[in-house]
Simulated assay, not measured.
Amino acid sequence: MTSKPGVPADLLRAALAADPARPLLTYYDDATGERVELSAATLANWVAKTANLLQDELSAGRGDRLALLLPAHWQTAAWLLACAATGVVADVGGDPRDADLVVAGPDQLAEARACAGERVALSLRPLGARFPEPPAGFTDYAVAVPGQPDTFDAYDPPGPDDVAIGVGGRDLTGAQVIALARADAAERGLDGDSRLLSTADYAGWPGLSAGLFAPLAAGASVVLCRNSGHLDPAALAARRESERVTHFAD
């Protein structure tokens, strides 16, 4: 991936340069029993493929707004960073009617149909599986993304002053995302040896930061847990021990 200095995609590039094989994002879904572990290299590959899908197949680029209707999930992390690499604004929980394109999970397809532009659907099934029956009017992400190139170069790379994320009714530039992530990492005491377990959703900045951006900014790793209400305290404590968790966010 290439981008100008000071944009959120640089955080992943730094992690990749530091140690491509190190586990970077570990994902649990406690409703399905799914566990997925992504190294920096694996996550970067998903991000590159997703960015190529955005740029070449969906014709999206710098300044376009994407309504991101996805929960805290490892594929959501890939979309957030792919948007950062292309300059597409990831409008988290945004109104599809106001968006140039929309990306939605299975529970929000009806809402996503309000978007007049391109629509992408994610099944959120274990191992990134496709829909058993493709939803009408949507591109199935699991079908479209595997054939995309493994490296990405933006035609019109974003800069630090370009809006990168919309969240909670506020637009954040790339520089603001990095500054906030670094401040959150410092406040939490994260460093390169830290491993943060987050049960927070991606609906607001605190969850986005704890579940992705602050660990990236610190060179740390993250254990992202969805549907953790299914766990009793003893099971959650056991996970923290088995995953060598040093920090916790909910």
Rank of each mutant, 00 (worst) to 15 (best):
A99V: 04
A31G: 11
L190I: 11
E133N: 01
H73V: 04
L224P: 08
L70T: 04
H247N: 09
V223A: 10
G219A: 05
G6K: 07
V222F: 09
G93L: 02
T50N: 10
T151E: 03
S3F: 11
D162N: 10
A234P: 00
R35T: 13
V163N: 03
A220W: 01
T32W: 08
L236T: 14
P126L: 04
P146I: 13
D201W: 00
P5M: 12
Y27Q: 04
L53C: 08
P158T: 05
A218H: 05
V222Q: 01
L216A: 06
L236H: 12
L38Q: 13
L69Q: 02
R13H: 14
A112H: 03
V245K: 06
D153Y: 00
F213M: 06
A9E: 03
L38E: 11
A114V: 08
A235K: 10
G219I: 09
Y28D: 06
L80F: 14
L127W: 03
T86K: 06
D150K: 08
E243V: 00
A21Q: 09
F131K: 11
D191G: 15
P160G: 15
G168H: 00
S123I: 11
N45D: 15
T139Q: 02
A48V: 07
L70A: 08
A78S: 11
E37A: 14
F138E: 03
R195V: 15
Q176L: 14
G87I: 12
F131Q: 03
A175Y: 10
A9N: 03
P23A: 13
D232C: 12
A185F: 01
S209Y: 07
N52W: 01
A144E: 05
D107L: 03
W46F: 13
G147K: 02
E187K: 13
S221L: 07
P8N: 07
D153C: 00
R113I: 00
P160S: 15
L196V: 11
L43E: 06
V36T: 15
G87K: 02
G137E: 01
P146E: 11
L16F: 07
R113T: 14
R170Y: 10
D161K: 01
N227L: 00
R65C: 05
Y141T: 13
L81K: 02
A249C: 03
D56N: 10
D19Q: 07
A234Y: 08
P215G: 10
A154Y: 01
